[in-house]
């Protein structure tokens, strides 16, 4: 079997997701040997414009150039993978959409003509169809490796579907919700080995929501603890704001004030 042609690309983002691929120091050579990397600007100078088997794209779409690039990549790739939370859920770039005060300088950089009049930043999945989403800010490197292996084996990759709490409890942690922290663990996809709660930091939900996240019950619980629902919502918007706002539409969370 010929090695699949793979490209790693980035649009507007911090490039942390691509780093999480090459930070697999122990297995980076295995990755390079397993696939035929055609373009990856962190480790090689060559550019490539031909057809691809798999294109990994990180970042959010915030300008016309970004949009053109993802559309072009979609056309020439069999499989497109949205890599990281920006590509899957909007992440930090999309925070601008929930900025209540409408601060002008957050809207666009006036000097930057590229972004002007483009509209709100959005995840890649809003603009093109993608086969897979590997979320996380940055994605867990073990998961990136698992993804590559499963694709090579011809399996269908499934995102980790259980909440962060499962791995958190297996790490023998007490619950941060008991200490009135706004930990989003129960609502958010795990697979991150619960690194944040294990270090004592509440979960900010960088990996996106599980299928049946219990929003209303979560808000109820927070209300009981005397935590302002608006604070909770802001907390939720940090990473997966667009998705969360869509899901909250039509629920009664506002009445829970």
């Amino acid at each position: 079997m010929a090695k699949p042609k793979v490209g790693f690309y980035d649009i507007t983002g911090c490039q942390g997701c691509l780093l999480s691929v090459i930070f697999n120091e122990d297995e980076i050579l295995d990755i390079i040997n397993a696939v035929d990397i055609k373009e990856f600007r962190f480790i090689m100078g060559e550019k490539y414009d031909g057809p691809l088997d798999i294109a990994f794209i990180e970042g959010a779409v915030v300008s016309k150039e970004d949009l053109e690039m993802v559309k072009r990549l979609r056309e020439r790739s069999k499989v497109v993978v949205a890599l990281g939370t920006c590509a899957c859920h909007g992440n930090i770039p999309s925070l601008r959409s929930f900025n209540e005060k409408n601060i002008e300088y957050l809207k666009y950089d006036k000097k930057n003509e590229k972004q002007k009049d483009f509209g709100e930043p959005s995840p890649i999945i809003k603009h093109i169809n993608v086969e897979y989403c590997v979320s996380g800010c940055p994605p867990d490197r073990e998961e990136v490796k698992r993804f590559i292996k499963e694709i090579l084996l011809g399996k269908t990759f499934y995102n980790y579907q259980d909440p962060v709490c499962r791995e958190c409890k297996l790490n023998e942690n007490g619950c941060l919700l008991d200490h009135d922290k706004i930990c989003l663990g129960p609502l958010i996809k795990g697979g991150c080995r619960a690194v944040c709660p294990t270090s004592g930091l509440e979960c900010y939900g960088c990996r996106g929501l599980i299928d049946d996240a219990s929003f209303e019950d979560y808000f109820k619980l927070m209300k009981e603890k005397g935590i302002d629902p608006v604070m909770v919502k802001k907390h939720m918007e940090t990473f997966a704001g667009i998705e969360i706002n869509e899901k909250l539409k039509g629920t009664k969370w506002e009445k829970l004030h």
Binding site: E27, D30, I31, N33, A34, K145, K149, E150, L153, D162, P163, C165, R166, K169, L170, C175, L177, G185, P186, L187, I210, D212, A213, S214, D217, Y218, L221
Partner: peptide, 24 residues
């Protein structure tokens, strides 16, 4: 809120899932 702590902390609960971890 759907965290699953009740089953993971239960001294009886023993349900499990099986995963394959393949090398490169």
């Amino acid at each position: 809120v759907g965290c699953g702590a009740c089953t993971l902390l239960c001294p009886n609960c023993h349900c499990f899932t099986i995963e394959d971890e393949v090398n490169f």
